[in-house]
Design a protein around this nucleic acid. Sequence first.
DNA 1: GTCTATAGATCGATAGAC
DNA 2: GTCTATCGATCTATAGAC
Lengths: 200, 200
Amino acid sequence: MNAAADNPGKREMILEAAKKVFLDVGFGAASMDAIAEAAKVSKQTVYNHFGSKEELFAAMVRETCDTMTLAFAEAAKDGNPEKTLRSIAQRFMDTMFNEDKLALHRTLMAEVSRFPELGRSFYQSGPAVIRRFLADYFKDQNLRGTLKVDNPQVTAEQFISMVTSCRLRSELGVEPIPSAEMREQYINNAVSLIMRACAP
Amino acid sequence: MNAAADNPGKREMILEAAKKVFLDVGFGAASMDAIAEAAKVSKQTVYNHFGSKEELFAAMVRETCDTMTLAFAEAAKDGNPEKTLRSIAQRFMDTMFNEDKLALHRTLMAEVSRFPELGRSFYQSGPAVIRRFLADYFKDQNLRGTLKVDNPQVTAEQFISMVTSCRLRSELGVEPIPSAEMREQYINNAVSLIMRACAP
DNA sequence: GTCTATAGATCGATAGAC
DNA sequence: GTCTATCGATCTATAGAC
């Protein structure tokens, strides 16, 4: 971090432009010229703020990951497992299932070999958070006898996987991002299976 | 060895080289020079066989999709749902969970906006096949009364999602492709949950 | 059909004025 | 710090010899 004393707004403009261009065409096909143009600054200004194309990409990813932090704590104080699971899943889908997050996900996966640490950052900022939270919830419910869960970690991942089972099709462009109604369907189906399998 | 002869072997060499380069660095960063060099032919020869970079990429993807066709028919004649589900899941994982397929998957997702039809091709060649087969299997087992499955399509997708729940971490580089032992764990966990939830 | 050579555009990154 | 101008490398694609 060097410059930005004069015009701090330009840094955000560059980051936003970088996000737009990188997520649109991918790292390899993105050009610093296009980013500078989208940010309405000269290319040299981009290089003054971020030293290289790689650093700009990493900064863009980290910035987007920071806005991804999930808050579930208030969702789990309900007492009814079925309703609670639905509420948690809802929050997760709202956070992860939008064009921006999916585009970042796609672009990141294509560059994991070039930026190994960024893929981990993304996972830790999003999926890992809800997975830990869900595992704790299942563990707690098992102790209370509300649910029968032998392996909370595994059940948490299974639940998330079922809820997001349509992600593969959305990412491959087979179908668009599911509507609110469709998401509720996926959530209901996942909750239903878990409740049947984990009834005490 | 040429003089005036046609050389069909070069087409395959180019396709293999294209696969290697495209899946290694992505479409945008891949160069026709690098592909020609890897195929040990001149760049013009690449352009003679495939008219452009886009066409070569599409041909490479389609060729790899063709080798992905799955055969499950003989796995379902067992009579024991637990064993049969395990067997089907095993075949699916062996087909989809290797470095080549994952790399293709990653590269494709990054380019869905550029090649909308290729993402669909990939899905139809792989995941859609096993999903249909599993749905038919669940429907049949429900009719026989061996399993209780209200919506075979949904249950099929849920089962696949659970089996491949580790794919996200592998694709983001959080952890390597799971070993044979780990895959069996994922399969066992998925089968176990389905059997508990769908016991008649 | 295959090669070498190269055109023409664009890339990442830098120099120097202000 | 921000700009314009540009360098040298590399890119896709093509021309022409054989």
